[in-house]
Amino acid sequence: MRIGELSERTGTPRRLLRYYEEQRLILPDRCTNGYRTYDERSVDRVMQIRGLLDAGLPTRIIKQILPCLDKPRAIHFADATPEMIATLEDERDRMAERIRFLTRNRDAITEYLDAVRGADRPDAAPEASTAS
């Protein structure tokens, strides 16, 4: 696929895709006419990159860990610095906190929807209100 299709499928501007290429986060093939071509795996790769950037990881660390995302059982960094390890631990902890927060919000929305749907049913008995 060409850069326009990758941009469309990932919701990532072409300029940002070119930046990922410049940072060697994605490696497109080149046609004889110089056009970039991307394989199907590039869609997942771009989504991984965006997720890691959204989590606050810098591109230099993303570049180091991307190869491990394809083979999670073969993770080994010969050049892992204490800074990199600390950064990854901090990011893991931030992600875990965000997951807890999102899970709590998802559960609250589910309870609300269940209550609303229950109230919409003509045969539903009124529920007692509980304080959280």
Rank of each mutant, 00 (worst) to 15 (best):
D79N: 14
R2Y: 15
S129C: 09
G34M: 06
L66A: 08
D44C: 02
R18P: 04
Y19T: 12
G11K: 05
V116P: 00
T81W: 08
R30A: 04
A78F: 08
D29R: 10
R73D: 15
D90P: 00
L53R: 14
R121Q: 13
E40Y: 03
I75K: 05
P58L: 11
Q64M: 15
S7W: 11
P126I: 14
R9E: 12
I65L: 09
P82S: 05
Q64I: 12
S129H: 13
A125C: 04
A115V: 00
P67A: 11
Q48N: 04
Y35S: 06
V43T: 07
R104V: 02
A131T: 13
A80M: 14
M1I: 10
D54T: 11
E97A: 15
D29E: 13
T130I: 15
I109W: 06
R121E: 15
Y38G: 01
T87Q: 09
S42Y: 05
N105I: 15
R9K: 14
V116T: 07
N33R: 02
D39Y: 05
I99M: 09
G34A: 08
A115S: 06
S129K: 11
E40R: 11
P13F: 12
G11Q: 08
I49N: 03
I85E: 08
R45L: 15
E111Q: 11
L57D: 10
E97I: 00
R36H: 05
L6K: 05
P67N: 07
E111D: 14
I61G: 01
M84P: 01
E8T: 14
R60G: 01
I49P: 02
E8A: 15
R98W: 01
T87E: 14
M47A: 03
L66Y: 12
D70W: 12
A86R: 08
R50C: 07
A108R: 13
A80L: 15
P28S: 04
R100A: 15
R60C: 14
I26S: 03
D123Y: 09
P67K: 05
L25Y: 07
R18K: 10
D114E: 13
R60M: 09
C31D: 07
M84W: 04
R36F: 12
E83I: 02
S132R: 12
R92V: 04
A115P: 00
G4F: 14
L57A: 11
Y19C: 02
S7K: 07
R45F: 00
A119L: 02
